[in-house]
């Protein structure tokens, strides 16, 4: 992605470092420690901290597509990995403290799936998707697509990190879902490409990261949460729970977004991404709940709590983002960054 604008001392220190120093120096990245420590000590809420969430987003980006003008060798610089772990630790603690887990189901696939469906049931289409279907203006829907672009232009990638960490039934289920996310061999059906098509159709920039400067910390946090779960093998239960929650809260809301986009005058090229998800995620949610999450818990019963945590964390952070957007819209404001160049 293109280099983002900095948002405080930590992201400034990181981008300065990536632009000037050599990644091959064995002490590379150590300069980050001090600003990271003091920012973590001072932050009132890491999920809404612009500087720390942008820093984490950039650190993860080194593992995905890289940052323009930055040496790829930075990916494994020990100083950066150390900084990432410090930020992740606070972020994970925050999410664990914020969510309430349901009563533990028995560790068989049917009960695990039923527990996940129960957790996700209240999100069957409320809040922002209902507003989008009935009332949102074309500009608000563009704004919504802008928030979503931070993840959807690379949809499925964070969960793919988990594939080599699973085995047997859970792995087969994850791969079956991901193969469909990646178009089943058809490049034009890759979900991230369908989203890029929607962005183009809505007059927006379809490049990954094109709107990083425009979105608030909480939008970056939704993407960072899944990168954190996906990139840490220790958290493989959480990434499986996260994907399950996403799949289980997608079909009905996708239909509402498709309806809202057509109502506001957008074409089929914009709505198609959402049409696709009505059908796709009705398949995926079954495979995710019973075979992937349930299969994982049957194989590794000790991961049950992390599966539930991953799902609860996904629901919580999406609720915070939805609340942020709706609060702005109710006051007639943009939900994007105040200095956003995005004209809405």
């Amino acid at each position: 992605m293109k280099q983002p604008l900095t948002r405080g001392p930590v992201s400034t220190a990181l981008l300065d470092l990536l632009g000037s120093a050599s990644a091959d120096d064995p002490r590379a990245g150590e300069e980050l420690q001090e600003p990271v420590f003091s920012a973590l000590a001072d932050t009132p809420d890491i999920a809404f901290d612009d500087d720390l969430q942008l820093t984490l987003f950039c650190l993860y980006e080194l593992h995905y597509s890289g940052i323009e003008g930055v040496d790829d060798a930075w990916e494994w610089a020990p100083g950066l990995i150390g900084a990432r772990r410090r930020i992740e630790q606070t972020f994970e603690e925050k999410m664990r403290a914020a969510v309430e887990l349901p009563q533990r189901p028995r560790t068989n696939s049917g009960d695990v799936a039923a527990a996940l469906f129960k957790m996700t049931a209240p999100d069957g289409g409320g809040g922002i998707s209902r507003f989008a279907a009935k009332q949102a203006s074309a500009e608000q829907l563009q704004e919504f697509l802008t928030h979503k672009s931070i993840y959807q232009l690379r949809e499925a990638d964070p969960h793919t990190w988990a594939i080599p960490r699973l085995r047997g039934r859970a792995k087969a289920a994850l791969v079956e879902i991901q193969a469909d996310e990646y178009g089943g061999g058809r490049p034009d059906r890759v979900h991230a490409e369908l989203f890029a098509q929607a962005m183009r159709g809505a007059g927006l920039n379809p490049e990954f990261g094109g709107y990083v400067d425009d979105v608030p910390a909480i939008t970056l946090a939704t993407a960072n949460l899944m990168s954190m779960f996906g990139l840490n093998r220790r958290l493989r239960g959480a990434i499986v729970g996260h994907l399950s929650a996403y799949e289980m809260t997608s079909s009905q809301p996708s239909r509402m977004y498709a309806n809202g986009l057509r109502r506001a005058g957008f074409g089929d090229d914009v709505a198609e991404y959402f049409d696709e998800h009505v059908e796709a995620d009705a398949v995926h949610e079954q495979i995710a709940g019973r075979d992937m999450a349930g299969g994982l818990v049957e194989a590794e019963p000790g991961l049950l709590d992390d599966v539930l945590f991953g799902a609860a964390a996904a629901l919580a952070i999406e609720t915070w983002l939805g609340d942020h957007i709706m609060a702005a819209w109710k006051e007639g404001r943009s939900s994007l960054q105040p200095q956003s160049s995005f004209a809405v």
């Binding site: 069957g124 079956e176 193969a179 469909d180 089943g184 059906r189 079909s251 009905q252 239909r255 696709e276 009505v278 059908e279 796709a280 995620d281 009705a282 398949v283 949610e285 079954q286 495979i287």
Partner: peptide, 22 residues
């Protein structure tokens, strides 16, 4: 559009014969 499909069993899907989660 996909290899594995979900067929509606409750009768309430609006994309029958496929399931839409209804």
């Amino acid at each position: 559009n996909r290899k594995t499909v979900a067929l509606c069993r409750c009768g309430a899907s609006i994309i029958k014969p496929y399931c839409d989660g209804t």
